[in-house]
Lab assay of single mutants.
Amino acid sequence: LVRYRTISKIPQITLNFVDLKGDPFLASPTSDREIIAPKIKERTHNVTEKVTQVLSLGADVLPEYKLQAPRIHRWTILHYSPFKAVWDWLILLLVIYTAVFTPYSAAFLLKETEEGPPATECGYACQPLAVVDLIVDIMFIVDILINFRTTYVNANEEVVSHPGRIAVHYFKGWFLIDMVAAIPFDLLIFGSGSEELIGLLKTARLLRLVRVARKLDRYSEYGAAVLFLLMCTFALIAHWLACIWYAIGNMEQPHMDSRIGWLHNLGDQIGKPYNSSGLGGPSIKDKYVTALYFTFSSLTSVGFGNVSPNTNSEKIFSICVMLIGSLMYASIFGNVSAIIQRLYSGTARYHTQMLRVREFIRFHQIPNPLRQRLEEYFQHAWSYTNGIDMNAVLKGFPECLQADICLHLNRSLLQHCKPFRGATKGCLRALAMKFKTTHAPPGDTLVHAGDLLTALYFISRGSIEILRGDVVVAILGKNDIFGEPLNLYARPGKSNGDVRALTYCDLHKIHR
């Protein structure tokens, strides 16, 4: 019993810090008490220290592992850092350059016999395009090294910054494609005289377009951006097909006994025919423009016929181009109408809503002055909100995010209106959640004399007048207030005048 009563005193000691020596009952000389009392004092002292730490809000209350900052290894790049964003855009520009100039170089340097010394005699450094290609190869190699040090988000939505895990993730992902696209074939085969082989191998750079397509997928929600990307894709495919079309004609031209190829026909049409040795002929500019003209006309199913396939190889390629053109029509131009419709969806919704308003007016036989006010209010409210119901949009977000959005939407009023000066951010967040926005066209009466005042109004834009009878008592403008002081009276009061809008007004109100 003594032991039980001794232990039962522990909660009292913990909360009230009572010393055991003052209790005459606990001072009985028993061996059990002498053993338990020192333990009680020690526990009391420890609990006292913990309570003191909690009340003082000291940093040592938290466990040590929670006080440590997340460790980022040296030379690790955050995937959302500004440097990584700028670097990704730079790589994107280099990939676009590669997609345009690599097929052009591979096709127009394929057994090209233009006048001038061969590239091997001039030297590697004197070729501007080769120098640019070398810079692109170096940048792609540097990009691989950067990807080995860039964080990523795993399946659990955690940012991984450990170098080993980053390397394994990159090896399992895009490393092989990036490595093949970054191989400097110019340096590996330079001086061997195989410019045709170098041009063909350099087309491996186009593998990076797969990554670019995935990154550009984030802009699919913007109709104008999608339309622009589709047109660029169409032009890029036409450019690639033009390079292939020229390569076919250029390879067949020296081996044909009869002059029936499209390059021969082009030379005869523009007065620059090929001679018996295969030299001469149109310039590279004429060849490229004509090839691009043929691919565009074939892809769009126009086909004027002034550039036509004559050999079997050219006919087979033309059939493939027609098939590609039909697929592009289905996948690209078939979506253009939907994209344009999405661009004008706001206008369509406006006309639909206006039609419903006019049908309501016609069905209920609203008189002319009231009908005009109804239409003007709808037009003004639509121009202010673009038909978007803010309350319906915010309803799907958590309250903390709703408060931040409301604070942002009402920031101008909260910053410049005098009653809100000096208020804490928590108070402003709470008030912003209570605001209701209303609009009024010129001549609209917001409050009639004798109406119950259940709200306090803040003028965000425009001006109003307060009338008693036919006498203008006051004219209020931006950041002015009218209405009933909230919670100042037990019952809502009545208006002693009319409140009429002089201009288009936007008002925020808080109800009782």
Rank of each mutant, 00 (worst) to 15 (best):
L370V: 01
F397Q: 01
Q127C: 03
M139K: 01
R421C: 13
Q269A: 11
I260A: 03
L216G: 04
N410C: 08
R358A: 04
G443Q: 03
V307Y: 03
I260M: 10
G267C: 04
P128W: 09
I135R: 01
E114K: 14
T445W: 06
T295H: 01
P398D: 03
I324P: 01
I244S: 01
Y384C: 06
I144A: 01
E196N: 15
A107Q: 01
N391V: 10
L176A: 11
A213E: 05
Q372P: 01
A224R: 03
L209E: 01
D186H: 14
A181F: 01
R74W: 04
G443F: 01
C122R: 01
A423Y: 01
Y124W: 05
H439T: 14
I146S: 01
R205L: 01
G249I: 01
A392T: 05
P118A: 07
E115N: 03
V159Y: 03
G173V: 01
R371P: 01
T437P: 12
L355W: 09
H239D: 01
V357A: 03
C122E: 01
A119R: 15
D286F: 01
V289G: 01
E115H: 05
E195I: 15
L227M: 13
D88S: 01
A204Q: 01
W75I: 05
G426F: 03
C406T: 04
A449F: 11
W262V: 03
A392G: 08
T347N: 12
D133C: 01
L323G: 03
F363R: 13
C427S: 05
G396S: 15
I91W: 01
L188W: 06
M251W: 13
K395N: 05
Y288W: 01
E221W: 04
A204L: 11
C406P: 01
A242M: 01
V307T: 04
M231D: 01
L93I: 12
I141A: 09
Y80N: 14
A330L: 04
A449C: 12
H73E: 12
A155F: 09
G191L: 03
F294C: 01
I388G: 03
R373M: 06
R429F: 01
S298A: 14
T295G: 01
W75Y: 06
L229S: 04
